[in-house]
Amino acid sequence: MSAVTNTIFSPELAARFDKLVTLYPVKRSALIPMLLYAQDEVGYVSDAVVHEIAQRLDLFELDVRNVLSYYSMLRTKPAGKYNVQVCTNISCMLRGGYEILDHCKAKLGIGHKEVTSDKLFSLEEVECIGACCWAPAMQVNYDFHEDLTPAKVDQILDDYAAGRGKDVK
């Protein structure tokens, strides 16, 4: 294992990464989970994250960036503390997904991939999130919210704003 002397991650995450690389027949298999978990902690995949993960996996930074650019959940800029992802794909569209998206835009005062000035929320229009039978649906970070109505969205966003929202890690 490559020694990383000055980790930028919390001791828990660093320990998790130490273990993760041992699970697979090939170390590199840990790359995508590592990028995701690092993003969860740091807020986005920063240059420092790329550097350390490359070091941990004996990869070039370019290899890491190549993979990073492929996956839509990985981002290289900070999002809000709560990233609101509204599905507008077919099943959601038919049951008011766009209404929900527009409601979020109005309520938060931001557009697709924008962040509120207090950095509390960001918003994204996303493709199907696998909740089609409970449409319209959205995720706030990793949490699912289903059978949405504008009133329900208000409640959910108010809860997050007040620090009462569910937050899966």
Binding site: S91, C132, W134
Partner: peptide, 9 residues
Amino acid sequence: SEPGTCKDH
């Protein structure tokens, strides 16, 4: 990830 599909969920 196929739109319309949430059974494995």
